[in-house]
Design a protein around this nucleic acid. Structure first.
Length: 723
DNA sequence: GGGCCCTCGTCCTTA
DNA sequence: ACGAGGGCCC
């Protein structure tokens, strides 16, 4: 489906089915388009924007389009330009977060912030909250901080402040969260910082506090278009409702079956109640799927049918049945991954392109065995998400310098910057420095440069003074392009030398540092007037998909959440086990379980031609093998899924890495080496994994699940044991 | 005491 | 990859 550029009006409407057509040309009030998976909603959105600009003469700056990722925004912008034959300058298109940040930058005072505010990512949030918890003697483990931040985030996404939270907090965790909600907000404000939720909330408060500003935007935006409407939260609803109040042209596109962000406050309710909020709304339903073969669609439909409270619809296709989706069970995660890699290799021998193949999993931690398997077979892959480039330590270290320069109140950034490279200022020294600066009401960098801080020990003082001086020098040069300042920081802070001294994978880290500077250079060359502030804004709102290398022919590995909105000819969904997918934390709650099922539905409906599902009998980290295969598999009607063996030949000993040791050896100290879970090799049956054991030493009777899922009881001494 | 380096256990999903 | 905890050095 390529939208070729053309200059005739008809071409904007050509090739659309009747409902798509109606959606593109919808006028005179709000519209909700229920767009099933693969029903061409991106096409509808881009054609509609182009149509409004060209056929209805709406100036681009009077259109606001909200997308779910920056990448989607960029692609949509390009497609619209291609349709129009010229770029739509001035078009407001981006994620809610990016657009809200833009408003906060334009009206910081009215929103209650000083200019140059910092955007805190989840790591910064944790650093901040953990500090507060520690101060008050509360549990300040990362896990606890994450839990509390999750609770606070849900309040924020409902638009509830600390008071409302305090009055409704139930149970010990919520009460602690409510207590620290206020303090956390105060701490953010003191640092002139916002977290991701505050971006939305801040814009909402801005519109409430200064209705004239809201009215101005509501007047400006003749049309407001929102993609992935099922994943909007209450505050986002309030924002679009406010912006569409004047012209009533809210155009929402979404699919209640693909709502997968309930845990961060999204409410399907926004779709289900659309008619109540906008009684005059036109509701259209896109039910023809153009993406998947019939069997894949049938499978997905069968699973999602197990969810209650759905907007009634039935997705259909004209496509042929195609290849029946397959399932296989690996003995453990390594074997499962190995089988995925084997099938990928097989597909490429049959002519498949690697870029058309994707592997989806529930959690990032599952990528490791897959990466290993692809590395062993020398199959190129690209990993989306996981440890993202801009979350790497060396990258965050250097960006902390820029943040601290831009926003002198950003203590999280100041502490980080002063600590790397080491300057003799540790946690205590930094705390004294910042406390004394605050008490004396002086800028921390000025105070540091002055060298007169009494509370900082003699040993760290010279390092701190030097840090303050150099930072002040750089701060005076904030008008320079980001790459020049970054380059300066790298060179004069001695950061690369520091990396080298740290050893380990320092060369890779140094490469990342250089890539960071190159990225900044690219930014300045592409963004007009793109200074350090704009650069920081951009990197703090990047999505994991934004940094992916597009051109490479490689298999794509990502979480099912990241898969939303994408499609691939060949899809693998791995790790289908109770406790993993559905995730253990969802098993108690029917609503969360339904969301897991939607997530599985999203994963399956990405597939165009072939779909392979898999699980492993034993998994080291999560359900520890007790969970069994996912209930979602049993929800698939018998005829729609073909059970296939996992592998055929006994595994050859991998070259390098693992080694097989001779019989008996691991039994030298059986107490230190539990037998269950060990990988073994048998002369006749091949390799497998121990699932049960009786006795110990060479006399042990062990049950082994071999390749292909067959289990056998054998004597320990007949096996080679992998270490 | 403070700074810093080492090892070891833990990690769901994200703008 | 990150923090906690232990040990070493100033």
């Amino acid at each position: 489906m390529t939208d070729a550029s053309s200059s005739t009006a008809a071409s904007l409407l050509a090739g659309l089915n009747p409902v798509q057509y109606q959606a593109v040309v919808l006028e005179g009030g709000p519209g909700l388009v229920l767009a099933g998976a693969g029903s061409g909603k991106t096409r509808v959105l881009t054609r509609r924007i182009a149509w409004l600009i060209r056929e209805r003469d709406i100036a681009p700056h009077r259109l606001l389009a909200v997308t779910f990722t920056n990448k989607a925004a960029g692609e949509m912008r390009e497609r619209v330009a291609a349709l129009l034959g010229f770029p739509a300058h001035g078009l407001w298109i981006g994620t809610f977060h990016a657009i809200c940040l833009r408003w906060l930058r334009r009206h910081p005072r009215e929103a209650g912030y000083a200019p140059d505010l910092s955007v805190y990512d989840s790591a910064d949030q944790q650093t901040l909250l953990r500090g507060l918890l520690k101060e008050d003697g509360f549990d300040h483990t990362p896990r606890r901080a994450r839990e509390l931040l999750g609770i606070v985030s849900r309040w924020k996404n409902r638009g509830e402040g600390p008071e409302a939270a305090a009055s409704q907090a139930r149970g010990p965790a919520q009460q602690v969260a409510a207590r620290f909600y206020r303090r956390y907000q105060d701490a953010l404000r003191a640092r002139n910082a916002v977290d991701f939720d505050d971006l939305l909330l801040g814009a909402h408060r801005l519109f409430q506090a200064v209705p004239e500003i809201a009215d101005r935007y509501a007047e400006q935006f003749r049309h407001v278009l929102v993609d992935e409407y099922q994943d909007t939260n209450h505050v986002q609803f309030l924002l679009v409702e406010r912006l569409a109040r004047r012209h009533r042209n809210l155009f929402a596109v979404g699919d209640d079956d693909q709502s997968i962000y309930g845990w961060r406050g999204a409410q399907v309710k926004n779709i289900l109640d659309f008619r109540e909020h906008f009684p005059e709304a036109t509701v259209l339903s896109l039910e023809q799927n153009y993406r998947s073969t019939k069997t894949i669609l049938d499978l997905a439909n069968a699973v999602i049918a197990h969810n209650p409270d759905r907007w009634p619809k039935r997705l259909w296709t004209e496509r042929a049945a195609g290849t029946r989706p397959q399932f296989f069970l690996g003995a453990d995660e390594d074997e499962e991954a190995e089988e995925v890699a084997r099938r990928v290799a097989e597909a490429t021998r049959a002519g498949a392109e690697l870029r058309g193949i994707a592997i989806f999993y529930r959690t990032h931690a599952q990528s490791r065995p897959l990466e290993d398997a692809f590395l062993r077979r020398r199959i190129p892959y690209r990993l989306i998400g996981g440890v993202r480039f801009y979350e790497r330590r060396e990258v965050k270290d250097l960006l902390a310098y820029l943040r601290a320069l831009v926003n002198p109140s950003d203590e999280v950034a100041l502490r980080r910057a002063v600590g790397v490279p080491r300057r003799g200022i540790g946690e205590t020294g930094a705390a004294s420095w910042l406390a004394e600066s605050a008490a004396r009401n002086v800028d921390p960098l000025e105070a540091a440069a002055g060298g007169g801080l009494e509370s900082v020990g003699a040993r760290g003082r010279s390092g701190l003074t030097e840090f303050g001086r150099i930072m002040l020098e750089w701060r005076a040069r904030l008008g320079e392009p980001p790459e020049r300042l970054l380059g300066e920081i790298v060179a004069r802070s001695g950061y690369e030398t520091y990396l080298e001294e740290q050893g380990g994978d320092w060369e890779e880290r140094r490469a990342n540092v250089r890539e960071l500077v190159d990225g900044a250079r690219l930014f300045s060359s592409q963004v007009e007037g793109g200074g350090v502030r704009e650069y920081l804004d951009q990197v703090s709102l990047l999505t994991s998909a934004d940094t992916a290398e597009e051109k490479a022919d490689a298999v794509t590995l990502m979480t099912a959440h990241n898969a939303k909105g994408l499609e691939f000819p060949r899809v693998f969904v791995v790790g289908l086990e109770e406790g993993l997918f559905p995730h253990a934390s969802s098993l108690e709650d029917p609503a969360e379980l339904a969301e897991e099922r939607r997530l599985f539905y999203v994963a399956c409906t990405r597939a165009m031609e072939t779909l392979v599902l898999s699980a492993s009998a034993l998994r080291r980290r999560y359900s520890s093998g007790g969970g069994g295969v996912s209930r979602f598999l049993s929800e698939i009607p018998a005829g729609l899924l073909e059970e296939t063996p996992c592998g055929d030949a006994p595994r050859r000993a991998p070259s390098g890495g693992r080694t097989l040791v001779s019989e008996g050896e691991p039994f030298a100290d059986p107490d230190e080496h539990p037998l269950v879970g060990r990988r073994v090799h048998h002369a006749t049956f091949g390799s497998g994994i121990v699932v049960a054991a009786e006795g110990r030493g060479t006399e042990a009777h062990v049950t082994v699940r071999f390749h292909g899922g067959r289990s056998r009881k054998v004597i320990g001494s007949y096996l080679e044991w992998e270490v």
